[in-house]
Design a protein around this nucleic acid. Structure first.
Lengths: 148, 148
DNA sequence: AGCCGATCATCAGCTCTCCTGACTATCAGG
DNA sequence: CCTGATAGTCAGGAGAGCTGATGATCGGCT
């Protein structure tokens, strides 16, 4: 990305605002998570796996659907997480087509630390909103409303 | 993109919300603009050129900076718009390094129609916000605040 | 007048992310 | 024990963007 001067003509264009806000947040997120050896997408996978692990562990296809990514993309994601020892693929005993994705001990540890970092990044990113006297939760609420 | 079921674990993640909202809007925008033979980025270029044309027409580098894209990306954008007859490159008489980008008559016509379409797309996209009794302008205001 | 660093536009090539299509293995139902 | 559907994998390609190099031009300095 270049200068990001954001002149007048574009401040009212929703497409521009969404795209560049997303880019900025992704950069801030990547910077903060880099020391942990993980990126935002991998963290999201870990979080989904841990959250879904109340009952049966999720298959790759289920995790992919939950994350809104393609199942072929999930293969690479699972490869990366498994290579880092954060996740294990285990053939499901009931359905041998499925790869059940288990979060390992180190994976759970890293998840906890990374989630703390994520919260801090989000808080910092939304700081200008709070300073302007607006509701810092409003953005997430509006976006969730639009996706529902 | 796949199912987009948006389950609980992700609704509080700002990165996920921004990314998928941006994607959804881009898709809606592309669908609506397709009949006009233009996409969102090209429309943004046209709008910036027309807005800046109060004084001297913008050079490619200036337009690129205004849009937050790389100057090399601007080359392809200018190629596409020129091929469609919406924009003309003219060597600036004062500085022969610069390509002044002029919006043609057909370009101005298309811009007017496309901007109407864009407004309609944005209105439709934000309809759920209005229906929920929230301020439909809040999203753009918050995003602009974060980018400033 | 002439030089030199900076700027503009362009192009080739790379990366990243994601998708499509094909293939294998496996399951469930008739 | 077929048939159709599903899970995971891989190869290949599309799209956006960036880096680095090149040629033309400008502007200031000497």
């Amino acid at each position: 990305m270049t200068d990001d001067v954001t002149p007048g003509a574009l401040q009212a264009r929703l497409g521009y605002l969404l795209k560049h806000t997303q880019l900025r947040f992704a950069e801030a997120s990547a910077r903060a998570l880099a020391p942990l050896g993980i990126d935002g997408r991998e963290l999201a996978v870990l979080a989904v796996l841990a959250a879904g692990a109340a009952g049966e562990p999720l298959s790759q296809a289920e995790a992919a659907a939950a994350l809104g990514v393609d199942r072929t993309t999930m293969v690479a994601l699972a490869d990366a997480l498994e290579a880092k020892g954060l996740v294990e693929r285990r053939r499901s005993p009931h359905d041998r087509r499925r790869n059940a994705l288990h979060v390992t001990g180190p994976g759970a540890d890293l998840l906890a630390r990374a989630e703390a970092v994520r919260h801090e990044v989000e808080r910092g990113f939304l700081a200008p909103v709070a300073e302007a006297g607006e509701d810092p939760d409003a953005l997430a609420r509006l976006l969730a409303l639009l996706l529902s």
